[in-house]
Simulated assay, not measured.
Amino acid sequence: MSINENGFSERKTILVTGATGNVGRYVVSQLLDMAVPVRAVVRNPGSVDLPDGVEIVRGDLAEPSTLGETLAGVGAVFLVWPGLPTSLAPAVLDELKKYAQRVVYLSSMSTREGRAQQAEPITDFHATIEKLIEGSGLNWTFLRISGLATNTLGWAQQTRSGDVVRWPYAAAARTLIHEKDVAAVAVQALTSDRHNGAKYILTGPQVLTQAEQVQAIGEAIGRPLRYEEISPEVIRPKMLTQLPPAMVDGMLNAWAGFVREPEPISSKVEEITGTPAHTYKEWAIDHARDFS
């Protein structure tokens, strides 16, 4: 593989949206490790902290007209749709397909095939974006992930100030996935056409209740933690200060559902990357500093 004067391989550039996010940061770093040229599109280039070797460009998915100059020479796009209206997606996809051949979209495991409307607003949102991508003319891969383990960083304020995590649905059982593993699959899909048209279910390797997750965090930080279950009615007002009502209710309903029916386990991470998915305990060790 030849190397150009900038030290990059002659492969086409990969554009990463959400490059400063939980998954996007690992997509960027893992692509750099493979000597693949990476371009990160951000709204404010002067305020981001990304590794050396990343080309940082200004652009905003909320303003599709700003994307044109960011796409020259791009072969594939890692797409995270950050809660923007789905009505913007057709214009964004029109810009992407002028240059790129492939899009890898970060979606949700709860998306169900063949439904006119999904069970929850968040799932309906992802299903809509998936449908638009399918009709765009681009090659695509959908990464339908279980809950990101990083979502449990929402407990960090409680663990830093005490030894009790107060939260609803202690028995909600999930297969939370390490952001490293999502990124590892994304990198495979971004750099090979073997994954075109795939809808991958990606999960962690084990089912843990929320109470067991808190226990794993305690082990990682060397301090016993206790899960104190509270009613959803108690936590809902606090969640509403940060999230819209439909999203809050969707999350609470999902956790209630995981008490009755735990999330399934998928082996796709290992099948695609050749490496077993990280356990939640490994994730907690990686993030121990955040909780202590």
Rank of each mutant, 00 (worst) to 15 (best):
K199G: 09
K180H: 12
A277I: 05
H178W: 10
I201Y: 10
D290V: 01
H287K: 10
D286A: 14
V259H: 03
R194S: 14
A220F: 06
H278D: 04
Y200W: 12
T275D: 04
A216G: 06
R236T: 13
A284F: 01
T191P: 01
H287Y: 13
G250V: 10
V182S: 02
E233M: 08
E212S: 09
F291G: 00
A184Y: 02
Q210K: 14
N253H: 14
A186P: 00
T191S: 09
I221N: 00
H178C: 08
V182W: 01
P237L: 09
P244A: 13
L252Y: 07
V182D: 00
V207L: 10
P232W: 12
I265M: 09
T275M: 07
V182P: 00
H278W: 07
A189D: 02
W255Y: 14
E228W: 14
A220Q: 03
Y280G: 08
A254H: 09
E233F: 11
T273A: 06
W283P: 03
T203M: 02
A189P: 00
V259T: 11
S192H: 06
L176T: 04
N196H: 12
V207H: 05
H278A: 10
V248W: 02
T203I: 04
A211L: 05
A189C: 15
H287M: 12
P224Y: 03
E228A: 15
P276W: 08
E271L: 09
H278T: 04
V182E: 01
E271D: 09
W283R: 04
A254V: 12
E263T: 14
L243R: 15
K180F: 04
A186H: 00
T241Y: 13
Y200L: 15
E228P: 09
P205V: 04
L208V: 10
Q213E: 13
A277K: 07
D286N: 08
P244I: 13
Q242I: 08
A184T: 04
D249R: 05
Q215E: 15
E261F: 15
V187M: 01
T175C: 06
S267Q: 12
K268A: 15
A288Q: 06
D249K: 07
P237H: 09
Q213G: 03
A246F: 15
E261D: 14
L190H: 00
P262W: 01
I221F: 05
P224N: 10
I272H: 03
V185N: 01
Q242N: 13
H278L: 07
H178A: 10
G257E: 13
L240H: 10
P262N: 02
T209A: 08
T209K: 10
E270C: 13
I217M: 03
G197W: 02
I272W: 04
I217H: 00
A198F: 09
T203W: 03
R289W: 15
A277Y: 06
Q242G: 15
Q210G: 02
D286S: 10
T209Q: 11
E233R: 11
A220C: 08
S266H: 05
V207P: 02
V207W: 03
P232D: 09
D181E: 08
P205Y: 03
Q242L: 11
P237E: 12
Y280H: 07
P237N: 10
K238C: 11
I177N: 00
F291R: 01
L208F: 05
S192D: 13
H278C: 05
G204L: 02
I230Y: 06
A246Y: 15
